[in-house]
Amino acid sequence: MIQYFSMLLIAIGIYGLLSQRNLVKLVISLNIAEIGVNLFIVSIGYIEDGLVPIISSVNRTSSLVFVDPLPQALVLTSIVIGVGVTALALALIITIGKTKGSIDLTELGSSGGDDE
């Protein structure tokens, strides 16, 4: 079920990327799609009744059934890179908004002059 939900999030993100014209909204759509991808990657490592992949004083040995730790490690990487991309995109949007006076794609396209 959660896998269908994450696919739905990816689809919502794609819809936002295609339909919105505001640059900030595009970044938000990108983030929604990214959350969907992250959820999906974590979900393929889930095992029914699996434990948190931490050996602790409660779950003492490595022979217990743990969920797959590898997708979680990869999603950690993905989240951090998502933060970097979002920060850089927002900085670009601030610069565009200052120099062009607008962050709307239609207005940016018409004022550029190169468009037909």
């Binding site: 896998q3 979900s43 393929i44 889930y46 095992i47 029914e48 059934v65 797959d68 590898l70």
Partner: peptide
Amino acid sequence: PAYGDADLSSRVS
């Protein structure tokens, strides 16, 4: 795999 049916023994994990 289906949700919850991952098989660790077939993976590098």
